[in-house]
Amino acid sequence: MSEPILENIRTRRVVREMTDEPVAREQIETILEAARWAPSGGNLRPNRYIVIQNPETRRLIRLVSPGMFQKAPALILICTNGDVLAEHSLPPTDRALLIDIGTAAQTIMLAAHALGLASGPVTSYSKEAVKVILNLPESYSPEMFICIGHKANTTKRGMTAWKKTSWRDLTHWERFPDA
């Protein structure tokens, strides 16, 4: 992995305050092209992406999303398409689906950061309300929003860490010793 990619990974942050400045359509398309290359279990590609830029739609989405603190000019909703699961006899609880959502989300956020954009994931929303507002097909399950925009200049501090961690705190090498 080249150093610019590592630097991109290190410097990306979850941004919760964004300006009203719109995100260019070409930038969103570049981000979605990157998401298409995210790893997918069995290469089944059950993810579907819905882009929301209409201000009133975004406002309504925010009203049923208690965890969406951003007023982002663009939202990308990652959905799982149940038709793909049915085609491959996969249950909706298959953990590969969660992995696909995670790899897509991180790829979207890194791509946004590479383009100089801010991003932040949101999972605290009512799935049922979002389905109604977006008139989603029955087979689509709305799994995660990624807010995309431009970082606001703010003096507000970010979320305080629960505990400072390094990669060493998170890692164990080889087999655990017997008790």
């Binding site: 009203l63 208690p66 965890g67 605290s124 929303y125 009512s126 309300a129």
Partner: peptide
Amino acid sequence: IELLALLITSARIQMEEPAHYGPLRLLT
């Protein structure tokens, strides 16, 4: 109505979120 939307959706998602998110939603 907007406040009701926040309260109702918070009640639902709180069933699956950490307990300490409860105060967060009420404060929001």
